[in-house]
Amino acid sequence: MTIATGSRHSLAYIAEATYGATPATPAFRQLRHKSTTLALTKNTMQSEELRGDRQIADLRHGTVQVGGDMQGELSYGAYDDLFAAALGGSWNANVLKAGTARTSFTLERNFADIGQYLRYTGCEINGLHFDVQPGAIANVTFDVIGQAEAVDANIVAGATYVAASANRPMDALSGAIKEGGQVLGVVTELKLDLANGIEPRFVIGSAKTLQPSIGRSNLTGTLTAYFLDGSLLAKFIGETESSLELTLSDGTNSYVLLLPRIKYTGGQADVANDGPITLSLPIQALYDSATGTQLRITRSGA
């Protein structure tokens, strides 16, 4: 008896021309990942009928949607399509800014050891998360919301597969952070979280959602740094606007994430033991008229 194992699991994706429909003879692109929680979920409707024997008379399946996340190690060229979808923009001269475009994907999971495929259609990127810590590979996570799932023992007719980029993962040791235009060399952790506010829209006559509604592009995060002086805390206290720039590199290729206009929404210097004290600063990114975005990603590669 063969049991599916993670070592034989792969992910692939292709953009949809029509929401919820996998293109004919699709050219899937392999997606580098280290974990995923993609799954179909269903609302259930339990009968409220009263019976003398105290039993539940029936239960029905209701509306359905795909949800979960895909987590990977940041590497050059591996996630550019998903970055663009998350921001609602497109790459222009290696620069990506936030916009209003909608892109849906068909995502495919292959369990090679048991010969099974799971396909998720109408998938959009509802959230994007960066997690950067010293001495660790930079992680990126994509939150997904989709329309439907299907199980298959075969590839889509005529499907081909493009290999993922093979660049090395990026780590914080090769990175740098600028705050307010100045190098900040005391950061112990940076987390950035982009939420798109995508919500399903259900109607009578179908268990599947229409193309979901989408909310505002909301970029928040947390900067954690050793507590050296009061300069960062003073920006929170005085509601002083600043900027944040994160550079990540593999030694050859790089991404520069610029938050051109931010405000700190908190500032805590908690003490739990006799070790170094860190300052935790929640961040809210704001629209910047000079750059036309709250987040700009610039890529540079060989």
Rank of each mutant, 00 (worst) to 15 (best):
Asn218Met: 06
Asp270Gln: 12
Thr41Asp: 07
Gly52Asn: 02
Leu259Pro: 10
Gln30Ile: 05
Arg54Phe: 12
Glu108Lys: 05
Gly89Val: 02
Leu107Met: 14
Glu245Ser: 09
Glu239His: 12
Val95Asp: 09
Arg8Ile: 03
Leu59Asp: 02
Leu128Cys: 07
Ile204Trp: 11
Val183Tyr: 12
Ser47Trp: 02
Arg119Ile: 06
Val271Leu: 10
Gly185Cys: 12
Asn92Ala: 13
Lys235Val: 02
Leu248Trp: 01
Leu244Ile: 01
Val271Arg: 08
Leu31Val: 10
Leu232Val: 05
Tyr79Gln: 02
Gly266Asp: 02
Arg201Asp: 15
Ala112Met: 03
Ala150Trp: 00
Gly115Ala: 15
Glu199Gly: 06
Lys208Gly: 09
Asp229Thr: 10
Gly99Gln: 04
Ser289Leu: 07
Ala157Val: 04
Arg102Thr: 15
Asp131Ala: 10
Ser47Thr: 11
Arg201Cys: 11
Tyr13Cys: 11
Asp193His: 14
Thr22Trp: 12
Val140Ala: 09
Leu279Asn: 03
Gln65Leu: 09
Val64Glu: 14
Leu232Ile: 02
Gly89His: 00
Glu239Ser: 14
Arg261Lys: 13
Leu118Val: 08
Glu49Ser: 11
Leu11Lys: 03
Asn92Ser: 15
Gln147His: 05
Leu118Ile: 07
Thr25Leu: 12
Ile125His: 08
Asn196His: 08
Ser165Phe: 02
Leu184Gly: 13
Cys123Met: 08
Gly127Asp: 06
Leu257Pro: 00
Gly6Phe: 08
Ala150Met: 12
